[in-house]
Nucleic acid binder design. Structure first.
Lengths: 332, 332
DNA sequence: CTGAAAGCGCTAACAC
DNA sequence: GTGTTAGCGCTTTCAG
C-alpha cells in the first residue's frame, strides 16, 4: 500500500504538499497539484485513515450503539442517520448493545477508544446516571429513544407515554372498555412509558385497570402470541387488546385466529411503531407511528450541527406520536 | 484522555511494560502488573485504538458492505456475523453500498483505507471483474450472496437458481400451469438467478414460458403490488404467482385481495427468502428459505479461519434452498 | 506557495 | 522481567 512519502518522492515534492492536496487544505499551485495527483494515481495511493485520525485527532466518524442489528425497527432508524452522515462525508460505526448492560458499556468504550467524534446511543440497559456521568466526562453524544431530564437537550425520542395513551384512547373512543394490554419488557423505559400511557387513558375514561388483563411480554412476536393465548384462555371478557409494539401484535393476531376468533369483529387489536409490515397484516393493523426516519435524521442533524458545525437547525427533540387508523379496530 | 505515557509515569515503569499489560503479550511480574493496572484505573485510561492499529498494522476489525441498513433481510445476515466476530473480539465496521456502483466502490475504498483486516462484501452493482481484480490485489474478502467462479472459494451464498426452481416446482407439483412470475430487478444477479430457476422448472414440466405473465419488479413490496395488479388486469388466466422475494409477495397479496380474489383459493402465491414476517401473513406464506443466519455465520467463520487463524472448519459455501410449505398454495 | 520537522499514542524489536 | 528506541503514516506549526 502506497504511502504519502512515496507519493511525495515520485512527485518530487514534500510530504506537506502532498498532504495539502489530499485534504484540499491550503493553496497549491495547479502545476504541483497535478504532479501530485498523477503520482497518487500511478501508485494507487489511498490515504491511510488510521494515520490521518491519529495525527489530526479526529476520526470523522460517529459511533452508533443499537440494541440489535436485526429487526426492521433499528434498521430504519439507522438508515436515516446514515444517509445524512454520508452526505456530510462522515462515517458511521455501528456496535450492538444486545440489551444488556455489559455489552452496552463495552460498545460505548469501544467506540470511544476508536476516537469517534461523537456517539449516538440507543441503549436499554444502562442507567440514566451512567449517561449523565458520561456527559460530565465531556463525551459528545445524543441519546435516542429515551428521555433523561438532566441531559434533555441531548435526547431525541418519541413521547412514548403519549403514544400509549392515544393507542388506548383509540380503543376507548370506539366504545371499548374491556381492554387487555401486552407490554414489552417492563424494565425497558419505552415499554414502561407506553404502559403508563395506557393506564392514564383508562383512568381518564374512568375504567379501572384490571391486572388480570395485563401480560408482560418482551417485544418479540412470540411473547405476543403467548400472552394473547393466555388472556384468551383466562375466560375474562376482552373486546380489545393493545400491544406494546407491532411485533407482539402479530403474535397476538395469530393467537386470536387460532382460537377461531376474528379481528376486529371479535377482538380489536392495536399495535405500536408502525413497522413496515404492519400494513400487510390482515386486517391492516391500526397502530401508533414511531417516526424512525425522522428520529434517525434528527440524531444525525444534532451531531452534524454540534460537532461538525454544519448548519442545521433541529426542530423537534421529542416527537409527537400519531395514530395510524387502519382496519383492526371495531366500533362497538 | 489519558495516554500510555501518563500511565507509565504514574506507575513508575516504562511504556513497554504498560503496553505489555494492556496486550497481555509478555510476562510481567504480578507486582508491576498491579501497579500498572492501578494507574490505568485511577487515570481512567482507555487504549487508543487508532494508535494501536497504526503501530501494529492491524485493526482487528472486519468491514462489511451491505446494500442497505434497513430491511429484515440484511439485518439478519449481519446479526449472525456480528455475533461470531464479537465472540472472537473482532469488530465489525458496516458501510452501505446502496445498490449502486459508485457507493459500493466508495464503501470498499473507505473500509480499505481504514485498514480493515478483511472485508465481507454483499454487493449488487459492482462487476465480477472488479472483485476478481480485488482478489489479485491481495485484499482479503469474502463475497456474500453471489457466486463468482474465478474466486469461488471466497463466496458464500444460496443456490438461487435452485431456489427459483423449487419454488416453481412446488406450484407445478400442485397442478399449476398458468404461473405468473414477478422478478426482482433483473440486473441483480440473485433476481436473475431465481428467474432462471423458474424458467428451468417450467421447461422441465413442458410448460412454455409466457412473457405476458412475467413482470419485472424491484424487490420492494410496492412493485409486487403493481405487478400483480397489472397481471390481474391483463385478462390472462393465472392460477398462481411466484415472486422473486417475500416483500413483493406481500404487495402481490394486497393486490389480489383488492381485486376481491382469495389466496390460495383463487390464486396461489409463493415468495422467496422467508423473512420473519412471512409466517404472519394471512394466509401464511409458502416460500423458499434463505438461511440468512447460516450464511452470515459462515462468512464470519471463513474470515476468522483465514485471517485470524481461528480453528473453524467451514462446511458449506453454497447453501441449498429449502421450500417452506405453509398455506398459500392450493392443490388444483 | 512550499518544505522541514515535531509529534499523534502505541507496538515491537532489541538490549540489559 | 523490564527499559530504550525506532518507527507506523499522516497533520500541522513554523519558516522561508
Amino acid at each position: 500500500m502506497a504511502t504519502i512519502k512515496q507519493v511525495s518522492e515520485l512527485a518530487g515534492v514534500s510530504l506537506a504538499t502532498v498532504s495539502r492536496v489530499i485534504n484540499n487544505t491550503d493553496q497549491v499551485k495547479p502545476g504541483t497539484k497535478a504532479k501530485v495527483e498523477d503520482a497518487m494515481k500511478t501508485l494507487g495511493y489511498r490515504p491511510n485513515f488510521i494515520a490521518q485520525s491519529l495525527a489530526s485527532n479526529k476520526s470523522n466518524t460517529v459511533g452508533y450503539v443499537v440494541p440489535e442489528l436485526h429487526g426492521s425497527f433499528f434498521g430504519d432508524l439507522l438508515s436515516g442517520t446514515e444517509r445524512l452522515l454520508k452526505q456530510a462525508n462522515k462515517h458511521l460505526f455501528i456496535a450492538a448493545g444486545h440489551s444488556n448492560e455489559v455489552d452496552e458499556v463495552k460498545a460505548i468504550e469501544s467506540l470511544l477508544s476508536r476516537r469517534c467524534d461523537a456517539l449516538i446511543l440507543h441503549l436499554e440497559a444502562v442507567s440514566n446516571d451512567y449517561l449523565v456521568q458520561l456527559a460530565k466526562d465531556n463525551v459528545d453524544f445524543v441519546v435516542v429513544n429515551r428521555f433523561i431530564a438532566e441531559i434533555s437537550e441531548r435526547c431525541v425520542t418519541l413521547d412514548n407515554v403519549k403514544g400509549g395513551y392515544i393507542a388506548t384512547q383509540a380503543l376507548i373512543d370506539n366504545g371499548h372498555k374491556s381492554i387487555a394490554y401486552i407490554t414489552g419488557s417492563l424494565w425497558k423505559a419505552d415499554a414502561e412509558d407506553r404502559f403508563t400511557g395506557h393506564k392514564a387513558a383508562l383512568q381518564e375514561a374512568g375504567i379501572a385497570l384490571r391486572p388480570e388483563l395485563v401480560f408482560e411480554g418482551d417485544f418479540q412476536a412470540d411473547s405476543g402470541y403467548k400472552g394473547m393465548s393466555q388472556l384468551l384462555n383466562s375466560g375474562e371478557t376482552i373486546t380489545a387488546v393493545c400491544c406494546g409494539n407491532d411485533e407482539m401484535a402479530y403474535g397476538a393476531a395469530e393467537a386470536i385466529r387460532e382460537k377461531g376468533l376474528r379481528i376486529p369483529d371479535d377482538i380489536s387489536l392495536v399495535g405500536f411503531d408502525d413497522i413496515e409490515f404492519s400494513r400487510f397484516l390482515q386486517p391492516k393493523l391500526s397502530t401508533v407511528k414511531y417516526p424512525m426516519r425522522d428520529i434517525g435524521e434528527t440524531a444525525a442533524k444534532m451531531i452534524l450541527q454540534k460537532i461538525y458545525n454544519k448548519d442545521f437547525s433541529v426542530k423537534h427533540h421529542i416527537f409527537d406520536p400519531v395514530m395510524i387508523s387502519r382496519n383492526s379496530i371495531k366500533t362497538l
